[in-house]
Design a protein around this nucleic acid. Structure first.
Lengths: 132, 132
DNA sequence: CATGTATATCGGTATATCTCGATTTAACTT
DNA sequence: AAGTTAAATCGAGATATACCGATATACATG
């Protein structure tokens, strides 16, 4: 375990790290401060499952296609140009993660982005990709 | 390859799927329509790398901790309660994906969320997790 | 320059995810 | 009911990612 990035003891306190406000003393990770930043496991689960669902090229391609409106599973086979079983398993994961919803109509199953939050997430992520 | 979810030929055209506008004829995936929805590979890469970076419990924990401000690597060891090499490799991935930036000060390396877009993404994802 | 400390990288193993043919299920058609 | 088609599930091999001890690097300080 390390020891300290103590800021206010040296002469260059205000120079590069003026925005920091750290505890005094000789401890970084022994201090009380980082412990209070530990995040609860459960709160991240829903978030994590969304990110996991979108962390795959084929699934990302699917949700991009679905931003313009719903499509049925067979149409998504064309979008991905992949075998039916492959597409089906990706759709399963998107559904389990709550990113997409399904609507069954006869033989066909239509997929669409589940909610506006997911849509926003995708829009923001797309914007993020633009300027890099 | 499948065949068709042709809408406008049956009696129940307007009932359940009134919002759809599909081509006439006998083709679903053979029609010209889904092909135009194929997404270019390269445009998704930046997006994908961000999602991949966030699709891991430990890394998600890191960025959550960083939302309140920058932290040095040793402090993040405390946050994750994981060996130094494990934390370092996760930080590497977040950095490579452009999610976090680093600032070196003496022995210490400080990490922070890279840009406002990434921060927005995290906020939105957090909000998404709330109502599920 | 020798020592201590923070962090990065390496390398091998463990674990998870992806892929896709084969099979099953469900729904329409004749 | 038999045949056809869309989609879901299964299972096993291929690929990728996570983990973490060991080692290397970088910086500070005696």
């Amino acid at each position: 375990m390390p020891n300290q990035p103590n800021i206010s003891s040296d002469a260059d306190s205000e120079s590069a790290s003026g925005t920091l406000r750290r505890i005094e003393g000789d401890a970084c990770c022994d201090g009380p401060f980082p412990a209070t930043r530990r995040v609860e496991e459960t709160a991240l689960d829903a978030e994590l499952s969304s990110f996991k669902a979108l962390a795959n090229a084929k699934r990302l391609k699917i949700v991009h296609a679905l931003r313009e409106g719903e499509l049925c599973a067979c149409e998504l086979e064309t979008v991905l140009d992949a075998p039916q079983s492959t597409v089906a398993s990706h759709l399963r994961k998107l559904r389990d993660a709550g990113v997409v919803n399904t609507r069954k109509e006869g033989k066909w199953t239509y997929y669409r982005i589940a909610d506006t939050a997911s849509l926003q997430l995708l829009d923001l992520a797309a914007a993020l990709g633009e300027d890099r």
